[in-house]
Write a protein that binds this DNA or RNA. Structure first.
Length: 685
DNA sequence: GAGCTCTGAATTTTT
DNA sequence: TTCAGAGCTC
């Protein structure tokens, strides 16, 4: 009889380890869940179990890596408890950042914020840093000062790892070491500027939350809100997040974290494997449950993946096993160049498609977003639909940011970055006039409509009054109906597009999408927050609900593939320099992370796995004399791993690949000339 | 002060 | 290819 007995018959759907985790009584619980071992299932059943035991759903905090992951778990939990989603819908589910946003708005006063603060995304934060960098005159030193992106990265690392600037510079950014004093000054001003403007960046969301729970009394109050805290993907949390969790469990140690140290791949964001390795030390009395039965991959695929991760330095030992005993051996495909690699992948994709695996059950994975560029061209040429995950986001496009900036300045008129962006769209307005307008608004109780009383330079008069009128019309629309607000803003903004950017037509389409997304939101604030904290991750997210017969191939960075699985997986560019990336081989930790990244990629595959690499790679902007580089197979595919792979040649299986004379010649000699002559001999008289 | 054009430099992963 | 920055012109 199962522990749940007849009361919870669905517990029988779990294996003994999963059931132990789901029915765990009290105290901290660490679930080490290998790839494909039913991690999502375990969390979903845990939520269902708690609710069935009478826990109020609104007193459960479920922290996940993406909001989509939270929704998926709650959906499954909802179907288990069979009371519909209305119950589980009340669970606090989402990312650390979105939970922070929600808590900080409620307790804004406690941390010295106004409730209507706006959130800066990475690009905004970089721009703000850049403004200050210019104010300080740092941009023209005789030796180059770190770029805005580097400055923000250093800042972010300090915050997320809770390490000193000196330590971060010495260990992660040694080439910026000499700028320690200037950077400190820059960061000091950056913080002051954000506070004066009532804006938070991503890191601040976590930082303010962590400072809130640093207070014993606030921590106690917040801890009382939740009977249970559950955290997914714990291996990818950072020091700051661990600190938050400790604070949130003041006087109640019911916490369950689930993760796999072998899949920790967000070190660059300050995540540390130490969090999961040291969890039992942080929470005394921790019960550890290990899930090792893999329900995803075939035995041969698992064997390859296990051998890759076996070389890792430090980890919780676990060896995944599977009962999916049959299956094709994973293949290592050597290609002469990228073109051949593209042709091979497409050929296999189509073959599997004809055998009955839809395109969306197949995925091409790669280390960096640009590594699929040439494949995308070829897919487009052949009319094969695909969706790409990761890489440049919809929201990062300049025109989308412009429109969002309009909404932001209405939401928080102190948001100088939003103003700056919008004002400089107008002809005749540059940085200094924009700054004067911002001061003007500040002097008029931050009422955005007050720009009407500003006197712009003559060249900008007409455009400026059009802007003032737009704002005068949208401001009274309140916070409701963001789509209507966008519609009105577009009446002003669309005509500017052709002047400011190329491709105005494509950009207008994006703005229409944005308006459609906005129509699903009740308020401008909710729309803005969602857009920043949970942005659409691919063009697929923008297209609305897909119809049943729509099908597309998935292209994804390995990072974005986390938590997903496909029947057939193609890991491309498995060559040293790309995997591991040349930029990540500076330290042993970085190489270890690249190894885990490889492991994540391999374990996404259920039935078919192809690892491909081109011998020659063509660099677009690199080495002007000879842009071809010869690559070597990824160092992670050691002799031990190769024994589990079937090695094939990319050219052999891609008939019809246009290789333009690049194929090796046959070893055959025919006297064609003689044959041609013979053709006419019978006609001789 | 704004805006244009030219040059040179640097290319990961994302909440 | 794209982006940041410098320098020049109006």
């Amino acid at each position: 009889m199962t522990p749940g007995g007849a009361a919870y018959p669905w517990l029988d759907e779990l294996n003994p380890q999963q059931r132990e985790a789901v029915t765990h009584a009290d105290g901290p619980l660490l679930v080490i869940a290998g790839a494909g071992t039913g991690k999502t299932k375990t969390l979903a059943y845990r939520v269902a179990y708690l609710i069935s035991r009478g826990v109020d759903p609104s007193r459960i905090l479920l922290l996940t890596f993406t909001r989509r992951a939270a929704q998926e778990m709650l959906r499954r939990a909802g179907s288990i408890v069979a009371r519909g989603t209305s119950t589980t819908g009340r669970v606090w589910g989402g990312t650390f950042h979105s939970a922070a946003n929600r808590l900080l708005r409620t307790h804004a006063k406690a941390v010295g914020l106004e409730r209507d603060f706006t959130v800066l995304d990475q690009g905004d934060a970089e721009d703000l840093i850049n403004l200050i960098r210019h104010d300080l005159g740092l941009h023209k030193q005789e030796k180059r000062f770190p770029r805005k992106a580097a400055c923000l990265a250093i800042y972010s690392r300090c915050v997320n790892t809770a390490e000193s600037l000196e330590h971060v510079l010495a260990h992660e950014y040694p080439w910026c070491d000499e700028w320690a004093d200037e950077l400190r000054e820059l960061f000091k001003r950056y913080v002051a500027r954000k506070q004066a403007r009532n804006v938070l960046d991503f890191d601040d969301l976590l930082l303010y939350w962590s400072l809130l729970v640093e207070s014993e009394s606030a921590a106690t109050e917040l801890s009382k809100l939740f009977d249970h805290v559950l955290v997914d993907e714990y291996q990818d949390t950072n020091t700051l997040q661990a600190k938050i969790l400790r604070g949130m469990r003041t006087g109640n140690d019911s916490i369950m974290v689930v993760g796999d140290d072998a899949q920790s791949i967000y070190r660059f964001r300050g995540a540390t494997v130490r969090n999961i390795l040291d969890f039992p030390k942080q929470f005394p009395g921790t019960t550890i449950v290990t899930l090792e039965q893999n329900y995803r991959s075939t035995v041969p695929i698992l064997e390859t993946a296990n051998r890759v991760i076996a070389q890792a330095r430090e980890r919780y030992t676990k060896d995944l096993w599977s009962e999916k005993d049959v299956g094709q051996m994973p293949r290592l495909v050597t290609c002469t160049d990228e073109t051949e690699q593209d042709a091979y992948v497409i050929d296999r994709v189509l073959t599997h498609y004809e055998q009955g695996i839809p395109l969306r059950r197949q995925a091409v994975l790669f280390r960096a977003a640009h590594l699929s560029d040439s494949l995308e061209v070829e897919l487009t040429r052949r009319n094969i639909p695909y969706h790409k995950y990761g890489g440049l986001r919809f929201l990062e496009a300049a025109h989308v940011k412009d429109l969002v900036a309009f909404l932001r300045l209405l939401e928080n008129p102190r948001d100088e970055l939003a103003w700056f962006r919008v004002l400089q769209l107008l002809d005749g307005i540059g940085p200094s006039t924009a700054a004067r307008v911002i001061d003007h608004v500040a002097d008029h109780r931050n009422d955005p409509r007050s720009i009407a009383s500003f006197s712009p330079p003559p060249a900008a008069e007409e455009a400026f009054s059009a802007l003032a009128e737009t704002i005068a019309q949208v401001a009274p629309m309140g916070i409701e109906n963001p789509a209507a607000q966008i519609e009105r803003i577009r009446a002003f903004y669309d005509p500017l597009l052709p002047k400011v950017y190329d491709n105005p037509y494509v950009r207008t389409r994006d703005l229409i999408s944005l308006e459609q997304i906005a129509s699903g939101y009740e308020s401008r604030r909710l729309f803005l927050v969602d857009l920043q904290l949970d942005p659409p991750s691919s063009t697929a997210d923008l297209a609305g609900i897909p119809t049943k017969d729509e099908d597309w191939l998935v292209l994804s960075t390995i990072h974005s593939a986390k938590g997903c699985e496909w029947d057939a997986v193609y890991l491309i560019h498995a060559a040293d320099g790309f995997l591991p990336s040349d930029l990540s081989t500076g330290s042993e930790e970085e190489i270890e992370e690249e190894r885990r990244l490889t492991y994540v990629a391999l374990t996404r595959a259920k039935d078919f796995l192809y690892v491909t690499w081109p011998l020659r790679y063509y660099h677009k902007w690199y080495a002007p004399s000879d842009r071809h580089t010869y690559t070597q197979l990824s160092r992670f595919l050691t002799a031990d791993v190769l024994r589990t792979l079937e090695e094939v040649n990319g050219a052999g299986e891609s008939p019809g690949a246009p290789t333009d004379g690049a194929e090796p010649p046959f070893d055959i000699e025919l006297d064609v000339a003689e044959r041609v002559r013979q053709m006419w001999e019978s006609y001789d008289v």
